[in-house]
């Protein structure tokens, strides 16, 4: 049998995944299931929703109620599921392009509504599934198949965007720091409201190759060398932080949750009318 975790939460007969060797998505997917295990959630009440992309293939391997939707629209489907049945724990898996390009509008509005979903964006800085076109997360001057001379678009900071749009729990981990992803997802699920976890992933096949970042190991090493925890960063100078990125919990500020607020309306009306 595969490990107990895989045995319990994965559809082991579908493994190994279609992902390329060393793709960070598998590591992050596992980190999510560890969070589910540690919280002891009832798998029958867990729903995993995704869009379209390499990352969005994850739900097919997970033994929950799983929904692989259309490109960019996962949060809108998930909103319908959660509002219809608030008993379900709804987890949303999206790619960086999926969530912030085609799904950008759904993304900011789901943050704003503060509906109790936990979204994890697998950020590999590229459109993996379609073969390496630049995404809103491809760093400036990096290359993609549609940016042969270097990308001149500016990038989003997914976490800043989520926090500004109203997400009540926000954090970032990486595939190297898989334990950080687990603890953020755990707290995200516990947060009654919209939680956004950015998980930096590696696409060695397209982003790595196009930008001469080396193979899977080099990409993990880059994450290890450049991630700085929020607490460590507090003691560092701007010069020391140059070229680094932060990981950890950025925002944890509970606010009234959407489905609860809606239930209040129902209760008030029914108390009055019936």
């Amino acid at each position: 049998m595969p490990s107990q975790l895989v045995d319990q939460y994965f559809r082991a007969d579908k493994l190994p995944q279609i992902w390329c060797p060393g793709c960070g998505h598998g590591i992050i997917t596992r980190a999510i299931t560890v969070a589910i295990e540690q919280l002891g959630l009832d798998p029958d009440k867990v729903c995993v929703v995704s869009g379209i992309g390499c990352s969005s293939r994850a739900p097919g391997y997970l033994d929950f109620n799983t929904l692989h939707t259309t490109h960019g629209r996962a949060l809108a489907f998930a909103t319908g599921i959660k509002l219809a049945n608030p008993e379900l724990k709804v987890i949303v898996i999206m790619g960086d392009g999926d969530a912030t390009a085609i799904g950008g509008n759904h993304f900011i509005h789901t943050c704003r509504r503060n509906i109790d979903l936990t979204a994890i964006i697998f950020n590999n800085n590229i459109y993996g599934m379609t073969g390496g076109q630049y995404s809103p997360l491809t760093p400036k001057f990096d290359k993609g198949t549609t940016a042969p001379y270097g990308n001149i678009d500016r990038t989003f900071d997914i976490c800043d965007l989520a926090a500004a749009a109203g997400a009540t729990y926000v954090g970032r981990g990486t595939s190297y720091h898989a334990n950080v992803v687990t603890s953020l997802v755990k707290k995200g699920i516990m947060n009654e409201g919209f939680s956004l976890i950015e998980a930096i992933s590696g696409c060695p096949t397209y982003y790595g190759r196009k930008n001469k970042k080396g193979g899977p190991v080099d990409m993990m090493q880059w994450q290890k060398d450049n991630a700085v925890t929020v607490t460590a960063a507090e003691k560092m100078t701007p010069e020391q932080l140059e070229g680094k990125f932060l990981i950890g919990e950025f925002k944890n500020k509970p606010e009234p949750e959407y489905t609860k607020e809606y239930q209040n309306i129902i209760n008030n009306l029914q108390g009055r009318d019936v």
């Binding site: 595969p2 895989v6 995944q17 992902w19 598998g26 590591i27 596992r30 190297y176 898989a178 334990n179």
Partner: peptide, 11 residues
């Protein structure tokens, strides 16, 4: 086990 993307090794 934590970092294997394909769950091919575990403790």
């Amino acid at each position: 086990e934590l970092r294997c993307p394909d769950y091919a090794i575990y403790v």
